[in-house]
Simulated assay, not measured.
Amino acid sequence: MTTVAILDYGMGNLRSVAQAMRTAAPEAQVMITSDPEQVRAAERLILPGQGAMPDCMANLRTSGLLEALSEGAKTKPLLGVCVGEQMLFGAAEEGNSHGLGWLDGSVVKFQLNEAVDANGAKLKVPHMGWNRVNQTRAHALWHGVPDEAYFYFVHSYYVMPNDAHLTVGSSVYGSAFTCAVAHDNIFATQFHPEKSGAFGLQLYRNFANWRP
């Protein structure tokens, strides 16, 4: 039985993520934990995030989980969700903060200017709602998820990788932006799989079975 630790550092849609993970992979042992030793013992890690990037980083640092997360991220399958994806990168425009810097790139705010949607309505920040995701390259976590499937977004900032190969998914809001990244044992999404219906559950199911 695979064990999945959802890191509870005080910021994140924890229960929704846990419920989705349990529904997608009922054979897995899924725990929400703030215990570093449980994080170290788990086989898979999920880093959720919700709210402001500076607050998320501050809470992670004071939670006592950062060292265990850093150790696990070297070898264990790690899934970042929403701000959990942004935290994997470096400099962030939100509050002039800085993420973990494990992936090369930055976090920037939407600059929509006079961009409009298909109906001519002006686009607003935050970007909120369902949007198509283009799978820019193949990955095990896309198994069973059709290209251009809809996922649910709530965000004002997005990641901008310096290495284009990190991008495995993109979406369009005013212009194209990266919404899913992958590197070795790390996969992360700007969208919320736990709020994205059947295809979100499929992504969590794939994560439970992923052997990077």
Rank of each mutant, 00 (worst) to 15 (best):
A18I: 13
E71F: 08
F199H: 14
G169K: 05
P26C: 07
A41H: 01
G200N: 05
Y9W: 05
E93L: 06
S170D: 11
D8E: 12
N131C: 08
P77I: 10
V30F: 11
W142T: 14
N206E: 12
A91P: 00
R61N: 15
R205N: 09
P126N: 11
F177P: 06
P212T: 12
V145N: 05
N96T: 02
L79I: 05
L66R: 06
M21H: 03
Q29V: 15
T33C: 04
A18H: 13
L7A: 02
G200R: 07
E67F: 07
L66S: 02
H165N: 14
N185T: 09
M57N: 04
N185K: 03
C82D: 08
G12Y: 04
N185D: 06
W210L: 14
V154C: 09
D35G: 00
L69N: 06
V168K: 07
Q38G: 05
F110C: 09
L14K: 04
R211S: 15
C179H: 13
L103E: 10
T62R: 15
A188L: 06
D35T: 00
W102S: 03
M128Y: 03
A42E: 12
A20L: 03
H127E: 10
S97F: 07
Q50K: 05
D184Q: 12
V39I: 15
Y204V: 03
V125K: 01
M53A: 10
A18T: 10
F151L: 12
K195R: 14
E43I: 05
E194W: 04
T75P: 04
W130R: 09
V39N: 03
W210E: 13
L123R: 09
C82E: 05
F153Y: 12
R40A: 15
M31Y: 01
T3E: 15
G169W: 02
G64W: 13
A182W: 11
A188M: 07
P48A: 11
F191T: 08
G84N: 00
Q202A: 15
S97Y: 11
A176H: 13
P54N: 01
G144R: 09
Q135K: 13
T75C: 08
A28I: 10
L65Q: 08
V17T: 07
A58G: 00
H155I: 00
A25G: 08
K195Q: 13
A164K: 11
E67L: 13
A121T: 09
T62P: 02
G129A: 02
A58S: 06
V133N: 02
V159R: 02
A52F: 01
A92W: 02
G169F: 03
H165R: 13
S16M: 03
A188V: 04
G200V: 09
L65G: 08
K195Y: 13
A188Q: 05
R61S: 14
F199G: 00
P193E: 06
K76G: 08
G169M: 08
G144M: 10
Q29P: 01
A188K: 05
T136S: 15
L100F: 09
L69D: 05
P77F: 06
L166C: 13
C56Y: 09
M11E: 01
N209C: 12
F207M: 07
M11R: 06
L141C: 14
L103P: 05
